[in-house]
């Protein structure tokens, strides 16, 4: 292939994921596009149910085993298109070139196999020629690298014998055992204590520096994104509603929903009880999205431009910092500076 500008390591175009259910069609992801260079971190934020996990599972091709799921669009990983690739082609990439860390490491580990055996299994499936002893050494080495004390003893323990933080470290060891070029971390710290959360994030950052992989960090916590991400994708109701470089997004957030998320971010200089003001209202139903801008039932500015917010779906403006809102750039900047920023 001889393209002029090389493709980014990961490029997702117009990704759509639908689930047919008894209650109707769940439009879990609608036309999201993003890209990620090797060594960089993309943060995906949004409330629970906004389509973050479904997006990441689509990249790994894990909707293929669900007969009710339909995935369209393009996913390019290292110049290979994955949506149209065969099951076997995608399987060979899973856990190898691309791997994933899940939210709850206790339920994500098999209860009947030792942690070591599960890591060995992950290694050997991608290194078929390697014997058990070498694989075991590799697994123990990985356990040591993620900071698990006495790794050769813990190798023989089961997931339920690990503490939450150690378990997530083991999960990370398993995800990194084959030197993946893309690591997706789906809310890796949500199930953990606050103190452990910081350790795990540090660990992921250190390992990324060491392995040079691209990382997708999924979270509902903008604080995590602020710490780790180069670029940010904000999702609402299965759609990307704002995306751009992390610096821009934090300094000049453009979408009223992003403002809401920023307002709900914990800050060190505030009293604990004042810290969290979640966005008012509840997330939309993905079976029956609100008309026009899906955020309009919760948006304080919905009536500003006549009826458009209620009837027309806003499209992303495009460019490095892109936003989907009917208000003009000037209007948004003015509101942010005068009404939002002073309260953040």
């Amino acid at each position: 292939m001889s393209s002029v500008t090389p493709r980014p390591y990961l490029e997702v175009k117009d990704l759509t994921v639908r689930f047919e259910t008894d209650d109707g069609v769940v439009q879990a992801v609608s036309g999201s596009s993003f890209s990620l260079e090797a060594g960089k971190t993309l943060g995906i934020v949004g409330e629970s149910g906004s389509g973050k996990s479904v997006t990441s599972l689509a990249v790994l091709g894990l909707h293929r085993t669900r007969s009710n799921a339909k995935v369209t669009g393009q996913i390019w990983l290292d110049d290979q298109e994955l949506v149209t690739a065969s099951n076997e082609e995608v399987r060979a990439l899973r856990g190898g070139k691309m791997s994933m860390i899940f939210q709850d490491p206790l339920s994500a580990m098999h209860p009947y196999f030792t942690v070591g055996a599960q890591i060995v299994e992950a290694y050997r499936i991608h290194h078929p020629g390697v014997n058990k002893k070498v694989a075991r050494e590799r697994a123990i080495d990985m356990l040591a690298r993620v900071g698990i004390p006495q790794p050769s003893r813990r190798f023989n323990d089961y997931a339920h014998q690990f503490s939450g933080g150690m378990r997530q470290r083991a999960m990370i060891a398993m995800a990194l055992v084959n030197d993946p070029k893309l690591l997706i971390a789906d809310e890796p710290t949500t199930a953990l204590d606050v103190t452990v959360q910081a350790q795990i994030l540090d660990l992921i950052r250190d390992l990324q520096a060491e392995f040079g992989s691209a990382v997708i960090m999924i979270t509902h916590d903008l604080g995590v994104v602020a710490e780790l991400a180069d670029d940010v994708l904000v999702m609402y109701g299965g759609k990307v509603i704002e995306q751009g470089p992390a610096i821009d997004l934090f300094q000049r957030p453009q979408h009223p929903y992003t403002w809401g998320l920023l307002g709900s971010m914990p800050r060190m200089d505030r009293e604990v009880r004042d810290r969290l003001t979640p966005v008012k209202g509840s997330p939309p139903s993905l079976i029956n999205l609100p008309s026009g801008c899906a955020f309009h039932p919760r948006c304080p500015y919905a009536g500003r431009n006549g009826d458009r917010s209620f009837t027309d779906i806003p499209v992303l403006t495009g460019g490095a910092h892109s936003v989907a809102c009917h208000m003009s750039a000037e209007e948004r900047t003015k509101i942010f500076q005068e009404e939002v920023a002073p309260n953040l």
């Binding site: 856990g95 580990m109 992950a122 499936i125």
Partner: peptide
């Protein structure tokens, strides 16, 4: 439907291992 079955697939295990080893192991216990 368990998370660890999804993990088994995410590791790149072929479907026969996912079912024949990971799922059967707990399904039959």
């Amino acid at each position: 439907g368990e998370d660890y079955i999804r993990t088994a697939r995410a590791k790149g295990l072929p479907e026969r291992t996912v079912i024949g080893k990971h799922a059967l192991r707990s399904g039959l216990t």
